[in-house]
């Protein structure tokens, strides 16, 4: 048994990419006080949008833009229903996810006559892989950091921007204010609805990037249900990190690596498949337990400190 561990790490990062976007997408809404379960459906719609735009536009960049536009549009749709229409956010998101499952197949059927995949009917486009000059020649690091999809680098940048946006910008501060206490924020003249729309717009763009990665980088076609719960995993990743961008990205990486580990172990060992499929979710539960223990301890220390 010879496992190429360097390639394994690179693969883990690749597998984590859509999760990082999903986590950030859920995070921005969460920070604005909205638990957006619709991320899963938004990613699915964007994945289809990306291949449609790429096929008809004849370019991978139009596809990428299309994925982002569809992500944005679906984000606006949920925002409109819940903010302007005052519909219950959870119900809207559940309805939206169900609609996305059927709606994507419906649209695909209208355009291609296929009900399962666009792999035959639409030309495949792949977002280019980037070889970073100098870094790619560094022995181990080069193989991990260089040679990833362009979107993976965007994901890394997005984590930093999200952190900067929330901590260092005026609008980021307002989003956090609305999330923590909407009534107080409103009393100082912040429009809660406007902030909500802005959060959903950012969420949509991120979900769009996640979808585009699924259908134009990881594989190069759309297939029904191809997101397979990755949106939900992103959602729990940001939950675990309590809405911190860097922590969410790390949690997403953890899931990406357990996924990659399940893949490698399946091929290299005789572990039962069912056990390996369980791994990412088992990791979720453990991670949530550990993070909540840390949080409880922290609170206890503060309480003890106050008692003194």
């Amino acid at each position: 048994m010879t496992i190429d561990w360097i390639a394994f790490i690179a693969e883990g990062i690749r597998m984590a990419t859509p999760l990082v976007f999903a986590a950030l997408a859920a995070l921005i809404c969460n920070r604005a006080g909205m638990f957006n379960m619709g991320v899963e459906g938004m990613i699915l719609c964007s994945a289809l949008g990306a291949v449609i735009f790429a096929h008809y536009g004849g370019s991978v960049w139009i596809g990428l833009l299309g994925g982002i536009i569809i992500g944005l549009a679906t984000g606006m749709f949920i925002a409109f229903a819940s903010l302007t229409g005052k519909a219950d956010l959870y119900l809207t998101c559940i309805a939206f996810n169900l609609m996305a499952t059927g709606g994507t197949v419906f649209v695909m059927y209208l355009l291609t006559g296929e009900k399962s995949t666009t792999s035959g009917a639409f030309r495949s486009y792949q977002i280019p892989v980037v070889d970073i000059p100098i870094i790619k020649d560094i022995p181990v690091l080069g193989r991990i950091i260089s040679g990833q999809s362009l979107i993976t680098y965007i994901a890394a940048a997005a984590v930093f921007f999200m952190w900067f946006f929330l901590k260092r910008t005026r609008i980021g501060l307002r989003i956090r204010a609305v999330g923590e206490n909407p009534k107080a924020a409103e009393s100082v003249g912040i429009s809660v609805n406007k902030i909500g729309y802005i959060s959903f717009a950012i969420c949509g763009v991120l979900a769009g990037l996640s979808g585009a990665f699924m259908s134009m980088s990881w594989v190069t076609f759309f297939m029904k249900n191809m997101v397979n719960g990755r949106g939900y995993i992103g959602l729990s990743a940001q939950n675990m990190a309590k809405g911190e961008p860097v922590g969410s990205a790390l949690a997403s990486l953890l899931f990406g690596f357990t996924d990659a580990l399940a893949t490698t172990l399946q091929n290299q060992t005789n572990f039962p498949v069912e056990f390996l499929e369980m791994l990412p979710y088992l990791a979720t539960i453990f991670a949530i337990i550990i993070t909540s223990i840390i949080a409880i301890n922290k609170r206890r220390r503060i309480e003890q400190g106050a008692a003194k």
Binding site: T117, M214, V219, F221, N225, M226, T263, T264
Partner: peptide
């Protein structure tokens, strides 16, 4: 013979990773 299951009939992404792993490591 190396055998693997991707756990779904509609998860080409996981399948692709499985095959790439089999090329690389097996």
């Amino acid at each position: 013979v190396v055998k693997a299951a991707c756990g779904s009939w509609t998860d080409p992404a996981t399948m692709k990773s499985l095959v790439l792993d089999q090329v690389r490591n097996n």
